[in-house]
């Protein structure tokens, strides 16, 4: 797997890729507080994930994902970035 590919191709422009955003430390802590969870109880995302790389997410960060939802129109999800 070449790093070159991902440098050239930014997955964020694709219609099927929802909007990802790295949360600030405070925002991240707020999310953990809101759901009363430890970081590893969030869904995970690998730092090698194409989108994670594109937005520069580092292990330990929390990523917010805005998805189109069939039932709710728009849904927020959070993922904890892990090594890999």
């Amino acid at each position: 797997m070449g790093g070159r590919m991902s440098e050239e191709l930014d997955p964020r422009g694709h219609v099927l890729v929802p909007e990802h955003r790295v949360l600030s430390k405070e925002e991240g802590e707020e999310v953990l507080r809101r759901y009363r969870v430890k970081p590893h109880q969030l869904p995970l995302i690998k730092s090698s994930d194409p989108v994670a790389r594109a937005i520069g997410a580092k292990p330990g960060d929390i990523v917010e994902i805005k998805r189109e939802s069939f039932t709710a129109g728009r849904a927020l999800a959070y993922r904890y970035v892990v090594e890999g």
Partner: peptide, 22 residues
């Protein structure tokens, strides 16, 4: 009770049941 869907270890699967909580 907070509307999240979790497994037996408390790991969140959905942040709001069915995404609309209905």
């Amino acid at each position: 009770y907070d509307g999240t869907v979790r497994d037996d270890r408390g790991v969140i699967v959905q942040f709001l049941y069915g995404e609309d909580g209905a």
